[in-house]
Design a protein around this nucleic acid. Sequence first.
DNA 1: GGCAGTTTCTATACGCGTAAGGAAACTACC
DNA 2: GGTAGTTTCCTTACGCGTATAGAAACTGCC
Lengths: 223, 223
Amino acid sequence: MQQPSPAPRRAPGRPPRISREEVVGTARRIVAEEGVGKLTMRRLATDIGSTPMALYHHVRNKEELLVLLLDDYAARTLRPVELPADPRERVLAAAAAIHDALAACPWIVEVLAADDLFSTHALWFVERIVDGLVDCGLTPERAVQGYRAIWYYTAGEIVVRTTAARRRADDDRPTYREQVFTGLDPARHPRLAQVADHWEDLTARDTYRDGLRALVAGLLAAG
Amino acid sequence: MQQPSPAPRRAPGRPPRISREEVVGTARRIVAEEGVGKLTMRRLATDIGSTPMALYHHVRNKEELLVLLLDDYAARTLRPVELPADPRERVLAAAAAIHDALAACPWIVEVLAADDLFSTHALWFVERIVDGLVDCGLTPERAVQGYRAIWYYTAGEIVVRTTAARRRADDDRPTYREQVFTGLDPARHPRLAQVADHWEDLTARDTYRDGLRALVAGLLAAG
DNA sequence: GGCAGTTTCTATACGCGTAAGGAAACTACC
DNA sequence: GGTAGTTTCCTTACGCGTATAGAAACTGCC
């Protein structure tokens, strides 16, 4: 009977002085304290007490670091919670939970544009969404497609809104939207001209849940 | 009776040697011939026969250049077309037209995350969508919110899909998705485990129009 | 002609992400 | 102990976007 493999025999090669956890943890601190704009590989290296290129043995590149940061964030904030018993409401609540968690930390926007399963720690919610859709009568296949539609809608909402907000922030010139509406020809675009005055208010309003409800209703009706 | 203002009197200051149109046009050529990855301010400057910083008098920064490029692209491809008479089908067709045009040039993804009105030249389609929703019985306000939901869904679909594709392209390691699914615990995530095998196929399928149809149906039912 | 005023272009420099290559620190085997 | 192999770390360097400062080329007014 030989030892299977978990022998704690030291690995060959130079022993590491920093760990992936330390990299991610320090990065999280920098982001939390000074914003994602201050997170550079060079800064991160000096904070850890190492050199920039040393980081690349623990993290493939900066993008992967950001993905790990998002995963870390999800692990800390996304916890299984009490969800409604009614399946449709369960879908809505799970999607809204993901949405609100992501919307609360707007720095991940670029990472967000990642994939449909953005984090292991969000899997619980994904499961709840797919499960709820199945309980509503969808086939598993259609439930997955429904989940994807919800994810597109959610990710799109966050990406569009936060990048628009960011541009407004570091940019004092008039919005592209404003330019469009001032030069609007009521003859060619009567509907838009009609709502031009309210547009700003309408877009400022948070209508994520309304759209989500409509999307889910449509998905269920189609299935 | 004095001349109103369109006197072609030369403006003061050093006469420009390059124009914004030339900048955008050359940028378009580079992108078309060698891809957006080859478009750098330095390369653009040498192609024009100028210096990098000279570009910044005609374009605020690279992001604005990309926005202009997108606008230019929209101007060339988005033309008013024959749309269905039925208002709901009109909404679907207009949204799909925007979607297909954008999906066909995946380099704009970051720019896409811009705003709800991404280009003057898409206004015609936006008008058609809002107008169609009103004709379906929505109030103008709800029609605008409906348009925004459609835009979120559309932009999200494109952003998510193209960045996922890009990552797969310049990355031979297993997908994050694959990693997640291999380590999936059927006890905790029965639904996901159930569809794990089909997931790859399901996500490869283009379900944009299905989701769009569901979303619009839900929007109309709610209004 | 000369002297503002205005606009455009150029030179230089900074910090960024990271590719390439070599030095350093360990294990395993002789 | 010596040598080979392996992993980690450091040094250097490249091209990127662009901030800053000043030179250059024009107009209008004296």
